[in-house]
Simulated scan of single mutants.
Amino acid sequence: MPEHNEISASDLDRATALLKRITQVFDEKVVGQEALRTALTSCLLAGGHVLLESVPGLAKTTAAQTLAAAVGGEFRRIQCTPDLMPNDIVGTQIFNYASGEFSTQLGPVHANLVLLDEINRSSAKTQSAMLEAMQEKQTSIGGVNYRLPDPFMVLATQNPIEEEGTYVLPEAQMDRFLMKEVITYPTPDQELEILRRVASGQMERPVVTEPISLGDVHFLRELVDKVYVDDSVKRYVVDIINTTRMSGPRPVRDLGRHVRVGASPRGGIALMRLGQALAVQSGRGFVIPEDIRAMRYAVLRHRLVRTFDALADNVPPEQLVDAVFDAVPAP
């Protein structure tokens, strides 16, 4: 029997109701930004981390706080600066003169949702400490390992318009983010609604009377794990990833002139996992090719290393991603 029969209609109905509550909280506190809401929700369900890029003032912090409030999770915000040390994030040992013993003070990374604001302003050493915590789901303080809360999700932001005093994330480290979402300006009507909400006091820190529980988040993640992915869809993902490496069933002509390094196998896993998360949000127990296509930019824009020619000609990564998807026939 197909694997997707494991998901019952009642489970899908429960998931739909839970996701609707998350959407309602977002709509109350964040104007527009439907793509951002979908990205954050999908990343939470898939168990990954997200890199957000935009100019200041486009509701990145508000969205992160809102997501934490919607799921009843603990939220911490870390403002990255060049003098931020790994211990400031992970935690440290403090000597108690009264008892003559060391006590451990856990850092702000020990929360369910952590906003790492302007990650490219922190030093490479601090970035590595955070990325290690993201990958291992634990921290080490004084030789003792401390598990991070479950669920655990990092939302890292970076500002693309300022380069002075920043430490650019290497491509290999960016690959550890499940997705990269680029946030755009709101429409004039949405901006007018923002002003109305600010004037009425509606934009204060979100207070959610009935958030879904962390247990509900675990249920949604387990449901995502059960979503059926047919072999034809898996082959579709593999063909896409291989096409970014200048191979695949239908290689894109002259792609090597713009792409220096294609996506890693982690990119294929991300496409499949986010496809499963989108299926649950659509009330389905199986992935369709449109789920894979819908997440193409978020998954691949930071995994394609562009050549100098592409950077000089200002060829956007989204254009290269579209060329790859256009070349690969959907099942």
Rank of each mutant, 00 (worst) to 15 (best):
T66N: 00
Q276V: 10
D175H: 08
F308A: 13
P329N: 14
E74W: 03
R266Q: 05
V168Q: 13
D291S: 04
D150L: 00
Q24Y: 07
K180A: 04
K20R: 14
P160W: 04
R21L: 03
T41S: 12
V114M: 15
D313P: 06
A172E: 08
G275N: 09
T23I: 11
G285L: 01
L178E: 03
L36W: 05
M174R: 15
V321R: 13
I161H: 10
R205H: 08
R205E: 08
R253T: 05
K125S: 13
V182L: 14
A63F: 07
A98F: 12
E181M: 14
P251Q: 03
V315T: 13
A35M: 03
M295I: 14
T157K: 00
L155D: 03
D322N: 12
G100I: 12
M134D: 04
E193Q: 10
D27E: 10
V259R: 06
D11V: 08
L195P: 00
M153V: 01
S42A: 15
Y228C: 06
L223C: 10
I119Y: 04
Q319F: 09
A298G: 07
S42N: 05
G72W: 02
P2I: 06
G91T: 10
L214D: 02
E34Y: 11
A68C: 02
R21W: 00
I22H: 01
L311N: 13
F286D: 09
G275W: 04
R293E: 12
D189N: 09
E181S: 07
A279W: 03
D230T: 07
F152R: 03
A298Q: 13
A98K: 15
A15H: 02
L52H: 10
N87R: 10
C80V: 06
S10M: 07
R266S: 04
A156N: 00
D322G: 12
M272E: 15
Q65W: 04
L274A: 08
V71M: 08
G107F: 12
V280D: 09
T209P: 01
I292L: 07
L51C: 11
P289S: 12
R21I: 01
D150C: 01
N120I: 09
N5F: 05
R260Y: 11
L304G: 05
H302E: 11
D175K: 05
R21Q: 06
I241A: 02
R14G: 09
T81W: 15
G283Q: 05
N145W: 00
A70Y: 02
D150Y: 00
D88K: 04
V144R: 15
E101N: 15
G32V: 03
R273Y: 07
G165F: 14
E118N: 02
H4S: 13
D309K: 06
V71W: 02
P251F: 01
E163H: 11
P151A: 07
N87C: 13
Q319K: 15
A39E: 06
A133K: 01
L113K: 11
L40D: 01
L51G: 07
R257L: 13
A294K: 08
V305M: 04
G107V: 08
K60M: 03
E34F: 10
T38F: 06
A156W: 00
L195N: 00
T61S: 11
F308L: 04
I89F: 14
I212A: 02
I119S: 13
S99Q: 15
